[in-house]
Design a binder for these strands. Structure first.
Lengths: 130, 130, 130, 130
DNA sequence: GTGGTCTAGACCACA
DNA sequence: GTGGTCTAGACCACG
């Protein structure tokens, strides 16, 4: 994973989203520890304060909790919460794209066509990344 | 249309996108004038300078051009350019959503299901707005 | 002749320069009348006020003077004044270009090379326009 | 360097040109940081927003890019791009001067004479500035 | 009335 | 400290 500094979405939120999706995907399971602040900051070449802010958000959402001197751990309901949140995020993104399509006077059919093309493109991209 | 100041996407860019989609949709046709700086600023309750910045971008993209003392007019190729640009924007949004879905370990089928639900929801929302 | 509305130089000044050069070139000779405000405004598709402002400048410079009910006439010394002024304008333009060249760390030789190329290009352009 | 508010060329563009030439001249090299917004604004006694606008243009041209929280840095190809752009600008200035000369009925020889005088004058001016 | 430029001053994210 | 966005209000050229 990497962070896009040119993306208008704040970096801390990009990180928040990334960790949330990782929890949803089972990369980090309930009871397990997620990578430490410093490790993430180094990996993403980002200021530790920024990672810290992402941790705060996830803690407020109840996905992770701190154990003193150890690190941040995924909560019991973390996985299921993260999954529904991720699904909602995807849903919202699609809604936004579909609305933009209608605004530009595209037909429902044409919008679906664009989606299918995007799906094909991402699928091949994912496959080739393996 | 209205602007969302809490949206991380800068206001001037929201306005740019909005006008671009309007041109793509044929609301403003080649050779026609688009609403003036001050009118748009009042409608969107935004500072005129912010609208000005949107105009700059659209002019750089070749969608509109100024006629001194008169206003900004849609260029000859403005409509077709705006359409292809809008399509690309929708595509990119979908790609982003699909990637997020895969990252959260959703199957292609499940992602498509979310899309279809979003499509249905937006369609009814659009219909009821009429 | 035509006016470039995108040129940062004000239109009234573009017109002033143009008339001054025409007088210098002998298109309009001392004692002769220059085209009327309305004619020029129509030809250049410019607001009459803008032409008016150019006339004021030229009158202040002593190149032309009004004869009531007739129009603007080139003064006795108009031709020679216009010639020296035009020469100065060309000189100043060159100075500006040469300074920009030095600022960009170009050698005198290289700058002269650019000038010679420009001279060739304009010469062929002028020849083909005949 | 200083800015001329009476120059019809907008201040932000004067600043853009100045920085572009500095990059072309190797004052700021690829990978290096250029002076900050606030520093430039103080030096030129200009509003920071005006400098910001110059930065925007240079970024769009691909000469510089921002590093969050650090400053603006010259891109890899910044120097070569700036050099060719500066050369073109000098060329355009000369073309403009030569055209004005022909319009004023000057001979090619006479125009070249004016150029040579300008070259001598600027050369001595530069030499004495050392 | 139109767009274009500029200043002053504010708040934000990031290092 | 850095750049990025936004507001408020001013002046200008042009029609």
């Amino acid at each position: 994973m990497s962070v896009d500094p040119n993306n208008p979405i704040p970096i801390y939120q990009q990180i928040t989203d990334y960790i949330r999706r990782s929890i949803a995907a089972g990369v980090y399971r309930p009871g397990e520890m997620i990578p430490s602040l410093r490790v993430l900051a180094l990996e993403l070449t980002v200021n530790p304060n920024t990672v810290q802010r992402a941790f705060e958000t996830l803690e407020r959402e109840g996905l992770i909790h701190p154990r003193k001197g150890l690190g941040m751990f995924v909560t019991r309901h973390g996985a299921t919460s993260a999954q529904s949140q991720s699904r909602t995020a995807v849903y919202e993104t699609f809604v936004q794209g579909i609305r933009a399509g209608y605004d530009a006077n595209m037909t429902t059919r044409r919008i679906r066509g664009v989606f299918e093309q995007a799906a094909r493109d991402v699928a091949t991209e994912v496959r080739s990344a393996k």
